[in-house]
Amino acid sequence: MLNFARRYGTLIGFVLILVLFSARLPDTFMTARNWLNITQQLSMLMVVAAGMTIVMVMGDFDLSVGSMASLSGIVAALLFTLGYPIWLALGLALLVGLAGGLFNGVLVALTGILPFVATLATLTMFSGAAFVVSGGKTISGRAIPEAFGNFARDGVALGPVTLPNLTILAAVVVLVVFVLLEQTTFGRRLYAIGGNIEAAHLSGVKVRRLKLIAYALTGFAAALGGLMYASRVASANPTQGSGLMLNAIAAVFLGMTMSEQGEPRILATVIGVLIIGVLDNGLTQMSVDSYVRQILVGAIIVLAVAASSISKSSRR
């Protein structure tokens, strides 16, 4: 019984939230239109959280994803103002993400700094770099190519509904991360590191190299999330991604409460992101104070994790 509550508590909570909102907002919540809105609204968080899942599988963290998201947006916008073609500007911004992630990997895997400390340092560095590159200003208006801003507003028409581009992009990222973590040797080795790093090392897993790659991928996803954000607001600001980091970690944590051994799973992360996004969407529509959502997300994490640790201690 307790084990059931531990494993499915979060999922049941999520279903209850859906039932509550459906009952309170009968005409507007469970509509295709609203769900397309929701998937679009949380697409950036979904991409960053998917990237975060990769390092958290190894039991690590990346606190720098939010400032990397800001930095990549700023880099792309600056290159736009210098007249670079869109594809090149975006490509270079993604490379910045890859390089920044790799730098995190070097600090953690090669230098041996604790992930918390290393990525806290790079959080500050990336954020500072975003301010230096932009001169602290918001880059918007004519500097941003219309096609870039239109991307986030457009979608692929599927019969009566239009699937937003941002939603499709987020789904593709989730799919790629799913294949990577669940279907490849690379993924299984990351889980091995997360399970027992010494054992993984002794059994021949190249821990350092895998950590480098994992951090680089997380940085890349953060940069992609930042570019999606920049496209949605058709502008770039040196702090605009900062809210993504805590929400991404919260989403992965929410997901972790649903897996067998408490390890992160990408599909569970998706549920975690949905909980955050749906609470935002539903509570706004119910005119509930936006600060209450933060309290609820925190409370759900505490409840879910508490259920998990209580069931563990009762087994002893």
Partner: peptide, 12 residues
């Protein structure tokens, strides 16, 4: 401080 959040809340 979340500007994209303003878009989301306008949609809601």
């Amino acid at each position: 401080g979340d500007v994209a959040g303003v878009i989301s809340r306008i949609e809601d």
